[in-house]
Every structure is written in structure tokens, then in C-alpha cells.
Design a protein around this nucleic acid. Structure first.
Length: 315
DNA sequence: TTACCCCACGAGCCCTCTCC
DNA sequence: GGAGAGGGCTCGTGGGGTAA
């Protein structure tokens, strides 16, 4: 069977390929698709012939995709997502939906904003499934390339025209340290103390400089970063067990001060404020289910944002 | 034009074999 | 031993031919 014939006659084969890429197992793919293992095996044989590639090879750790199969993954996911939206009924019933949504967020976004909403979301849509993945570079471009359906993001300068969004609220960086830290005894941090201290930098992309470093650089200054790591939540644990200073978004700091005994201080320098946005791609814009989730999340996120902002600035 | 029949083909299942 | 592949079978569907 040629590729064109496969696409014309058998979209199910592509659904099977997607399930195989996801589960890395013929048996598990069959279970997920409600088919027998031989049926999936036969479809895989057809796919192998159509693509003229083994697609998966057996190893002692299960099926491993070939480079061709790996390359097919993202465009196939995008295609099936769009097909799903095309065939989806125009109405959406949260009470009965078993739909799965993909959402991108940092551990920070998950902890500060998303996790508190989970119970409310599940009360309305008990069978809904949310799959949260972490960022891999520019989230706006991931949305554009068929990645997650929705993301909590701080948009960069060049957002593709195909990306929609709603602003949740603005935030600024603050500095946290352990409660017994020598600088915690002071009401306010001064710049000399700030520059003399050891710092921790959270950098998901592996950059050596964050917003604080760039602000210092504009003043011809630099701080001493002795620990760089990619996880926001782990950074609080490190802060609690060290004399490191940690500069993080205010909402995040406000969301963790109940869990970690940390002191929170304003930064002794001007760092640009930024805004959180809920963003999604044009192709999901008219999707009723997606619109429902967007609406629920947006209201939940803005409410949570107000709580955290007030905790940060009680006035 | 419509209804019916026949046949080919695809997809599913069970069972068994093969392979890692 | 577990998981994938293959053989043989059944069933459903769609297309083509034919009769009313």
C-alpha cells in the first residue's frame, strides 16, 4: 500500500501509529484503541509497508521507534488533533466528556496557579483528563508547531499571529531567603548586600542570565550566581537549606511562603514587570471544549492571581 | 431507477509460534 | 516469560451485475 492510499483509505492506521508512538507497545496501543493485539500488529505491518520503514524495532526494553517514526510524531499529533476538532460535535458537555487536554506550564505555574483549581475543574468535568508538560523553549512557537493546546505563559516579544491569549495579571520579581539568613534581619535589602550575597538562578532554558542579571547589567553591575538549576520548586528547598538568595516572581513566592519558612524582600533595583497570559493556538479557537476549558481556567487563574497579589501587597 | 444477490476485501478474533 | 507476529477463520461492507 502506498502512502497516499493509506491516507485516503485508512485514517485508523494513523490513529494506531499515534497510539504506538505514545505507548511504545503493540499490546498497550491495542488496549487503548479497544482492539486486539494482532489487529494492531497487522496495522503496524501495513504502516511499515506504506512508509517503507520498520517504524519500530524490538529491543529488550520493548518497542523503540525508528528515526522516521520519531519524526512522524509531532505532525501526526497535530493532524489528529485538528481532525478531532473537525469531527467533534459543536457542543461540549463537561459532565460527560472524557476528553484529554494538553497544557504546558512550568512547575511554578502548576503549583501557584493550576493545582488549586484542579478540584473545581473535576467537580464540573469528572472524567476530564489534563496532561501538563513542561516548556521546551518558546511556548508560543510550540503552540504554533502543534505542541500543547493551551499554556500559561509570559509571552516573548515575537508572538506568532496565530497565537491567541488573555492576560491574567502583572507580576514583578522579589527576593527570598531563609528566615535565619543574616540579611533577613533587615527590613529592606540594599544593593550592596544584594551584590555581596551568593545567588541561586532558576533557568529552564539553561541561560546564564535571568531578568535580574540583565537589569544589573544595564547598570554596569553583576551578581554572583553560585547555583543554577531548572526547577522553581526545588529552588525553594535549596534556599531554605543555604544562605543563597533567590529572585523569583512575586506570585510564586506568595504561593510558597505557607509551605517554606522563607523571608521575602523587595529587590533593591528596578527589574521590568511582566504579565502572565493564558495562550492557545488559532486552530483551537473555535473548539467548544477548548473554549470551555479556557473560560474555566481563565476565571480560576485570575481569581488565584488576585489572592496571590493581595498576599504580596496586603495594602 | 431500484432492489437484490454475489463476490472481494478489509478488519477483527482466537490460537500458536517466534523472538528478545 | 512477556510481547510481537502470523495463520486461519468469521463477519461486515461496498461495488458490480442483473432482474423487475
Amino acid at each position: 500500500m502506498q502512502l497516499a492510499d493509506l491516507a485516503r483509505h485508512d485514517l485508523n492506521a494513523l490513529v494506531t501509529l499515534h497510539a504506538l508512538l505514545d505507548s511504545r507497545s503493540v499490546s498497550r496501543a491495542a488496549e487503548r484503541l479497544n482492539l486486539s493485539q494482532p489487529a494492531v500488529s497487522r496495522t503496524l505491518a501495513k504502516l511499515r509497508q506504506a512508509f517503507d520503514d520498520p517504524l519500530f524495532v524490538r529491543t529488550h526494553r520493548g518497542l523503540r521507534p525508528t528515526a522516521r517514526a520519531e519524526a512522524l510524531g509531532p505532525p501526526l499529533a497535530k493532524l489528529l488533533q485538528e481532525l478531532g476538532a473537525l469531527l467533534a460535535p459543536p457542543t461540549f458537555d463537561p459532565a460527560s466528556t472524557t476528553r484529554r487536554f494538553n497544557l504546558a506550564s512550568t512547575d511554578y505555574g502548576m503549583h501557584a496557579f493550576l493545582a488549586p483549581q484542579w478540584r473545581t475543574l473535576k467537580e464540573e468535568a469528572p472524567h476530564l483528563r489534563l496532561e501538563v508538560e513542561s516548556y521546551r523553549g518558546s511556548i508560543e512557537h510550540q503552540l504554533d508547531e502543534g505542541g500543547p493546546e493551551l499554556a500559561i505563559s509570559v509571552p516573548g516579544e515575537r508572538v506568532p499571529a496565530s497565537v491567541h491569549g488573555r492576560e491574567i495579571g502583572a507580576d514583578r520579581f522579589v527576593c527570598v531567603m531563609r528566615e535565619e539568613h543574616p540579611l533577613a534581619a533587615k527590613e529592606a535589602l540594599d544593593l550592596d548586600d544584594f551584590l555581596a550575597a551568593d545567588h541561586q538562578l532558576v533557568s529552564m532554558g539553561g541561560d546564564d542570565r535571568g531578568a535580574v542579571d540583565l537589569a544589573l547589567e544595564r547598570e554596569g553591575l553583576a551578581r554572583r550566581v553560585s547555583l543554577r538549576q531548572p526547577h522553581f520548586l526545588a529552588s525553594f528547598s535549596t534556599t531554605q537549606h543555604s544562605d543563597l538568595l533567590l529572585c523569583v516572581p512575586g506570585c510564586l513566592a506568595a504561593s510558597v511562603i505557607d509551605h517554606w519558612p522563607l523571608a521575602l524582600r523587595a529587590l533593591p533595583l528596578e527589574v521590568s514587570a511582566f504579565s502572565y497570559w493564558l495562550v492557545w493556538h488559532e486552530r483551537h479557537h473555535a473548539d467548544a471544549g477548548h473554549a470551555w476549558l479556557r473560560e474555566r481556567l481563565f476565571h480560576g487563574l485570575t481569581a488565584r492571581y488576585r489572592v496571590l497579589s493581595e498576599r504580596l501587597d496586603p495594602s
